[in-house]
């Protein structure tokens, strides 16, 4: 084995993913070659440094107060998720959108989202897998952002797409959560 070959195998060797014959060849090379040995050491040291970066743990009562906050937020959002929350005003109060928002653009986003919601409802009714009661209310809380991500809860389907994208690809969304790629804007569509 020469230095160039070693370099090709270096990462796999670090992960113990080289075959025993390759590992043996690597070790023979390392015995004779100082520079490759240093190179391997450098990677090992960098990895050790990263592992040494420790996470300071918060105080013990942090976990309990955080759990209480999560519960508060959950009960608040149950109220928020009532069908009344669908009105644009209800959405507007906590969207935190910047002042310079482009209204025509925003309206076009809303149209797209309406199409998505319609699609999702259709997907919901069509899907035979879902054994939820048909009389359950569908409610949404949506604010629009140019990039969207679809996450399904049953299997991990993840996509980024623009609001005017072809939503027919995303039938999985009928069972999942839609959230904007960026945080700070509360934007989720739920089937309930």
């Amino acid at each position: 084995m020469d230095c160039r070959e070693f370099e090709n195998y270096l990462q796999d060797y670090l992960d113990n993913e080289t075959s025993s014959s390759v590992s043996q060849a690597i070790e023979e090379h390392l015995n004779q070659c100082t520079s490759c040995r240093c190179e391997l050491d450098a990677y090992k040291k960098a990895s050790l440094l990263v592992q040494l970066r420790n996470v300071p743990q918060p105080e013990e009562n942090y976990w309990e107060t955080t759990y209480d906050k999560i519960q508060d937020e959950m009960s608040a959002s149950i109220l928020q998720m009532s069908p009344n929350a669908q009105s644009p005003e209800a959405v507007k109060q906590d969207d935190g959108l910047p002042e310079h928002i482009n209204w025509p653009k925003r309206i076009s986003y809303f149209i797209s989202i309406a199409a998505l919601v319609v699609f999702m409802i259709t997907g919901y009714w069509v899907s035979n897998e879902i054994a939820e009661k048909p009389d359950e209310e569908f409610s949404t809380v949506i604010v629009v952002e140019p990039e969207w991500r679809v996450m399904t809860a049953n299997q991990s389907l993840y996509e980024n797409f623009a609001p005017d994208a072809d939503f027919s690809k995303f039938s999985g969304a009928a069972m999942g959560v839609i959230s904007p790629v960026s945080q700070g804007l509360q934007a989720e569509a739920f089937l309930k």
Partner: peptide, 26 residues
């Protein structure tokens, strides 16, 4: 906070309980 809120809100949609950990980390 946001992670657990999402997990709790959507847990009933998780079909495969074995996938819980990777879903949570995701």
């Amino acid at each position: 906070q946001e992670t657990f809120i999402r997990v709790f809100k959507n847990l009933h949609r998780l079909r495969n309980a074995k996938a819980f950990t990777s879903w949570l980390y995701q």
